[in-house]
Nucleic acid binder design. Structure first.
Lengths: 168, 168
DNA sequence: CTTGCTGCAAAAGTTTTGCACACGT
DNA sequence: ACGTGTGCAAAACTTTTGCAGCAAG
């Protein structure tokens, strides 16, 4: 495989350095600083596959003996959002869920409330919807979220045991 | 167009009675009771146009001299969700937003984070997406949420005053 | 009557903030 | 050096829950 700049969707490893500098540049532009804590948090975010939560990051960084406070995690997530490196995924209203989004095509999420499963699926075609909906009203499109709720096979089998519904 | 039972979307007034009995029937089926508080909350929900929050209901019912506690509102909203009379609209992760959904076609939501505006738009065609996404993975489709984020014209003009971005 | 319901206030869970000190730039 | 950042713990907020008395079926 010959050398290529970064054309197709890069793997995680290929992503780490570019994202690091992108974040750095973003921070500098805002007059903010690139601290070890922020670097560590970005690293932790890059490790994650799919959706994650703030508390999850905190826990994993503690495991890895990295001392970062909850407050710093929340503060940094905010910057990562502004830098468009991560995105909020709206799964439930109780808690924020995030996902690495930099350089990736838009994704939808298939969620099973019973089992808490979250499956990602490609949803780039919905950009057309996004643009049309905005255009029709004179808005500038920014992004979209598409979440499908369903019953996963796992939930369905788990459900078998519980008689409940019976229609009127 | 010959006579039809209740084909088109009914107006709010037409909705009140049916929904009341539907809620009643739902409660009975679950062995729950139809109390004045629950009736009042359902009424308040029917008054709302578009998206609303729990705290909003509480406030408005206080205004109307209806004594209902916060706890009861939350508890009732939960039942209304189960009865499929209202739906959670996922706009941000901080707070739950609800919307009357009974007998209505699926809607999408256009949100401007700057101005807090929320505009509803028809999105029934996305049911096909929902079904396809589920079918491809052996899930049973339940529902979906489609939220588009954008900058509203109002936000754009408000923004004019603030110089900030300038690219690197 | 029996069982569930309400209100209150306290609890729980997530996210934010004030402050004193420490550290990138 | 200056201006931000960090950790900690307390605060802020939304939502849930335990309990004693009350009301629907």
């Amino acid at each position: 495989m010959p050398l290529m700049k970064q054309s197709t969707v890069p793997t995680d490893d290929q992503l780490i350095l570019p994202l690091c500098s992108i974040f750095r540049r973003f921070l500098k532009k805002q007059g903010l600083k690139f601290t070890p804590e922020r670097a560590m948090i970005l690293d932790a975010v890059l490790e994650k596959e799919g959706v994650f939560e703030a508390e999850e990051l905190l826990y994993e960084m503690r495991e890895a003996k990295h001392r970062v406070s909850k407050a710093t995690i929340y503060r940094t997530l905010k910057h990562l959002l502004e830098a468009n490196i991560i995105t909020e995924v709206l799964i439930d209203s109780k808690q924020a869920h995030y996902e690495l989004s930099f350089g990736r095509k838009p994704k939808g999420h298939l969620v099973c409330p019973e089992t808490q499963q979250v499956i990602e699926f490609p949803a780039d075609e919905l950009n057309e919807w996004r643009d049309r909906v905005c255009a029709e009203r004179g808005w500038d499109p920014v992004s979209f979220r598409f979440v499908v709720y369903g019953v996963s096979p796992e939930a369905r089998s788990a459900q078998s045991g519980e008689a409940e519904d019976g229609d009127a």
